[in-house]
Amino acid sequence: MDFTNIAFYIFAALTVGSAGVMVFHRNVVYSAVGLLFAFFGVAGIYVLLAADFIAIVQILIYVGGILILLLFGVMLSQKLTKVDVRTESMQLVPAVVVVGGVLAVLLLTISSTPWKLAGSLEYEPTTKAIGRLMMTEYLIPFEIASVLLLAALIGAAYIARKN
């Protein structure tokens, strides 16, 4: 076992464990904390996959943006007289059957497919290459993404405003 393998198992355990807390805890704020550590674990997985830039973007956007939005959402949409912020579950039995089936199919497919491995296993800085691709080959998606963000900004502000 070399170091990256151990690190993979640590990060995978952290990710799955905290995602489990997120899904199965009845308190919404605990779910958010579970999600925090799940995002962090996924960032660690990206580092192991030699995607340094994506890992930092993951922390910056998910933890610094989306998670804070979610926490604000929890706190603005509850009566905060009690710490108790619970959520209920429904359709548990069908959900277990369907999700279990999906997981089984996915795992079977993954293990039975003969993947053609080709990629380089070197660790190289990716930031410059990603920036270059964004400004050349992926310029139009990049511009569309910025327009989408602007539209989402205006739309969210309009919807959330009191009439």
Partner: peptide, 8 residues
Amino acid sequence: AILFSLGL
């Protein structure tokens, strides 16, 4: 796949 199932 496990993360996807938990999310689902």
